[in-house]
Write a protein that binds this DNA or RNA. Structure first.
Lengths: 164, 164
DNA sequence: TTTAATTAAGTAACTGGTTACGCAAATGTA
DNA sequence: TACATTTGCGTAACCAGTTACTTAATTAAA
């Protein structure tokens, strides 16, 4: 392959993460488009959540997915426009938007699920020769959650200065 | 931690890749901003390439990094505006833009390098408990390069249909 | 030698995220 | 009970990528 970013080892990793993440994202969009499916990447997560929980709010979803709430607002707006989600204002707390799947969504679910199952299989195939990947990826996430890139790097900088 | 995407295993992985990639990206931007450095994430890669190669074109860089060429155009335009890169048109082939680091860039490099070294150390720390990560991540990249998400998923779909 | 095909790079429009900000509703407190 | 604080969510502006298209220059082919 002879990939420059790979040769850079630790220095190239963050760009490679983005490169792979983007590649999967765009490939997924293309798949749905080419198959004429009226859905987007990530919507499967919302579908799953709203099946499991019947009703949820924007904030609940954003906390569950650990996305920012504006990100969830955008996804939900698109899903509303496509008629897969409907909202009503909570009568007890009028700030809250209660989200539910529509009739149409439930009707189309079996078709979508065929694609999501095949996609899940794809990820399994991609990980087949990387038996430790999920476990080790989780460790990285946990470390970043505990202290992020900026914090760690500033600390490293300070240590470097002290040792000079 | 109890993260929904983690619980979803294979289904949540692509979103987790994006989440981590974004987290690193924004944290890096914040670091540079808070330290008053006039650089952005990824510029280190351009600096390294232009130090190694003296001169390069947009296309050469985009092929080396495996980014789209408009992405490189954008990065280079910013670096030009900041006075770190200058361009001249190739006299032999007037379509080509020859890129070089400026005087200013060379002068500031030692400062930047302090931060990049610390950042590299951060990635090493993050990977410390994940000894197989780089190797297994590479395998995934290679597989995706060989056949992308869409292709693989379509194939899985067809197999699923056959077995019914 | 003219013409067709390819290549380099710039631009436009879009994507799925982010942070920052504002407003209205609910909650806590003096 | 009045007022300050917090919460939910919507919007705006931005960010680093992408694809699709255009134009100009070069190269290949008739």
């Amino acid at each position: 392959m002879n990939d420059f970013l790979t040769e850079m080892e630790y220095v190239g990793l963050t760009s490679r993460l983005k490169r792979l993440s983007d590649s999967l994202l765009y490939s997924t969009k293309e798949l749905y488009k080419s198959e004429g499916l009226d859905i987007e990447p990530n919507w499967n997560l919302i579908f799953i959540l709203l099946q499991e929980n019947e009703t949820m709010t924007i904030t609940q979803i954003s906390e569950t997915l650990q996305f920012s709430h504006p990100a969830v607002v955008k996804i939900i707006n698109k899903m509303k426009k496509n008629g897969h989600v409907e909202t009503r204002t909570d009568t007890d707390d009028k700030r809250k938007q209660i989200l539910t799947l529509t009739e149409k969504a439930h009707k189309q679910l079996p078709v979508f699920e065929k694609y999501w199952t095949a996609g899940r299989q794809t990820v399994m195939d991609l990980l087949a020769d990387s038996p430790n990947f999920l476990e080790e990826f989780l460790k990285i996430e946990e470390k970043v959650n505990q202290s992020d890139y900026k914090e760690r790097t500033l600390k490293n900088l300070k240590n470097d200065e002290l040792s000079n």
